[in-house]
Simulated assay, not measured.
Amino acid sequence: MTALFPAELAWYATGRFYQAGDGTLADYGYFLHLPFPDVPLFDGDPGEKTAHFTFAARPFKAREIRNGALSLGLDPIGEFSLYLQRQPAGTFDDPASFAQGECIATFRRTSLAVGTTVAVSIGAVSAPLIGTNVFSARLVASTSFDFGGGRHDLGQHVGRGVTQFGTAAATPIAPPPAYKLVLPFTGSAVALGRAG
């Protein structure tokens, strides 16, 4: 296994933020790229239902502050895990489906994460335009696994963790039952590398 250099690309991910009826938030989705050479990420055409590698966050409650056209979501320190689904079963209609299979790694955000939504005003109407965020997360657990003809361990590639940069659409998607808001997003992460 080849370790990534610090700040070298670790992954591309896409998913959706879900707000439940009780106000808790969580994000779920799948990976478009991981640092596993020659490992199939999809069982067929790329998409949520064919993704072998998925992620799911532990639900959390965020606070919000406003600064003019900026809406800032303050997400507390929290954890998310990556899963290997040998038989892909993820669907955005059931976010919990992304937390199935074998847990191959768990990360914990190192600090508060601030998400920024930019609004645009046209006359008397103000509408959200786009959202961004960035956070660092330390690897707290990693498990070796066999897949695609080789043995892999995410911790051997990313070292101590990742820093992820995210972009979210501000236009909601119709939510599944038990949720009141859903927003799609994409994220790209770079490796923190090893200490010293």
Rank of each mutant, 00 (worst) to 15 (best):
Y28I: 03
G29R: 04
F31C: 07
L32G: 05
L32M: 10
F36T: 01
D38A: 10
V39M: 10
L41Q: 03
L41P: 00
L41F: 00
F42N: 07
F42T: 02
F42G: 02
P46H: 07
P46L: 02
K49L: 15
K49C: 12
A51E: 00
H52T: 01
H52S: 05
F53A: 00
T54H: 01
F55V: 00
A57I: 11
K61I: 10
R63Q: 10
E64H: 11
I65K: 09
I65H: 10
R66H: 15
N67S: 15
G68I: 02
L70M: 13
L72E: 06
L72T: 08
G73M: 12
D75L: 04
P76R: 05
I77R: 10
E79A: 11
F80G: 10
S81P: 05
L82C: 05
L82W: 01
Y83R: 05
Y83F: 09
R86A: 13
R86M: 11
Q87K: 15
P88F: 09
G90R: 03
F92V: 08
F92H: 07
A96C: 13
A96E: 14
S97C: 15
F98G: 03
G101I: 00
E102F: 10
C103T: 15
C103G: 09
I104Q: 01
F107R: 06
T110W: 03
L112S: 11
G115C: 09
T117E: 12
V118R: 07
A119I: 14
A119W: 13
I122S: 15
I122N: 14
I122T: 15
G123R: 04
A124N: 15
V125A: 12
V125S: 14
S126Y: 07
A127T: 12
T132S: 12
T132C: 12
V134R: 10
V134C: 09
S136T: 06
R138A: 08
L139V: 00
V140A: 01
S142F: 06
T143A: 08
F145H: 00
F145E: 04
D146V: 07
F147W: 02
G149D: 03
G149I: 14
R151S: 08
R151C: 09
H152I: 02
H152Q: 06
G155K: 04
G155S: 01
G155E: 02
H157V: 09
V158G: 02
V158A: 07
G159A: 05
R160K: 13
R160V: 14
G161E: 02
G161I: 02
Q164E: 15
Q164S: 04
Q164T: 07
F165I: 11
G166F: 07
G166P: 04
